[in-house]
Simulated assay, not measured.
Amino acid sequence: MLHRILENDFVQRLTHFPAVGLLGPRQAGKTTLVHAIQNQLSRPTVYFDLERSSDLARFQQDRTFFLEQFTEETVILDEIHRLPELFPDLRGLIDRNRQPGRFILLGSASPTLLRNTSESLAGRISYLELTPFQLRELPSPDYQQHWLRGGFPTSWLAPSTDLSAIWREDFIRNYIERDLPQLGLTANPIQLLRLFTMLANQQGGLLNQTALGNALQLRTPLVGQYLNFLEQAFLVRRLTPYATNVGKRLTKSPKLYIRDSGLVHQLLRLYDINVLFGHPVVGASWEGYVIEQLIPMLQFDQLPFFYRTADGAELDLVIESQGQIKLAVEIKLSDAPTLSKGTTTALQDVGNPPLLVVTPSADTYRLREHVWVCSVSSLPDMLQRLLDG
């Protein structure tokens, strides 16, 4: 099993919080990670999979009475969204015996899950998000295969391109037809697949719900509901624009990305790296891929935005902390990148922070004062250096 970077933080939080919620998309490796850290915990563990009918049946009568017999164990509740009515019971159990590491809750997220935990377990639970494999977690720095297949473990580890593609096709179909309805999204599967495919074609584009609704023959508010759900299921990222008083007309619409690059390529039937490089989506796909490698590295007080003005000044990412832009990021699909006038203007607009230009495989070097170039593989080291320096 590959070591997940989240592991140490996960174990540490279990020594402090009564409950820890590990959230993320289906098949990202949540259950595998929990089983891997069980021998590091101070308590014995008991595991219940709430998608298994025999385990779910144990909670159909007096749930509090049933769980009270495990006061000395860490109770792992997998697919917790299947039993949202359990959260008030967990609050009572925690308040009567507030010890760290009592419960681990695993879920694929949903509006119902988030609402119930925020209302019932406020101050008692800490959340962590487990993404599919990050490039920095892999034993080989082969960014091309990771970018092409995405980070879902079964897709990346598949012994052939065909098997990886078959898994991703089944994953998309099952998520749309089975998993999202179980999470509470009532939508026509055909329309939802069309929406997902449109988002792949418009990867990294500005959100225009009206245009999406017209194309799908759906009401605009319904499109918004679908997008909100896909975002809370960790399938879509909504990147908001940075707003600052620079006296310019700024873009107000967010950008939308399908978070896993392998799903983008599956929806567009791009199975070969050479075919991908010849497709119009290649630049946006690379941008989304790098963004998904970068954002999970940020600290809780480092917030990502993009910056764009009506005049064309643009930065792919700006990282804000304590009210200031600490770092700007440009994402290039060339190992010999150049900066446009619009980039220079955008940097001036946001206070001339350091700029990091991320490429596929360029050596790390300084392009000019306060501007560095690096590869996606060396991104973790450069990000830490520039944000902590």
Rank of each mutant, 00 (worst) to 15 (best):
L50W: 04
L50I: 04
L50V: 00
R52L: 08
S53Y: 14
S53Q: 15
S53N: 13
S54K: 07
D55H: 04
D55I: 00
L56I: 05
L56P: 08
L56K: 13
A57R: 12
R58C: 11
Q61G: 13
D62P: 06
R63Q: 15
T64H: 14
T64R: 15
F65P: 10
F65S: 15
F66R: 04
F66L: 05
F66C: 01
L67T: 10
Q69T: 09
F70T: 00
F70W: 07
F70A: 00
T74Q: 05
T74K: 02
I76F: 00
I76Q: 03
I76H: 01
L77C: 04
D78A: 02
E79R: 03
E79N: 07
E79W: 00
E79V: 02
E79A: 02
E79K: 00
I80C: 12
I80E: 07
I80V: 13
I80K: 01
I80L: 08
H81N: 11
H81M: 07
H81C: 06
R82Y: 05
R82T: 01
L83G: 09
L83P: 11
L83S: 11
L83E: 10
P84F: 01
E85Y: 10
L86A: 05
L86C: 02
L86E: 08
F87W: 06
F87C: 06
P88M: 07
P88D: 10
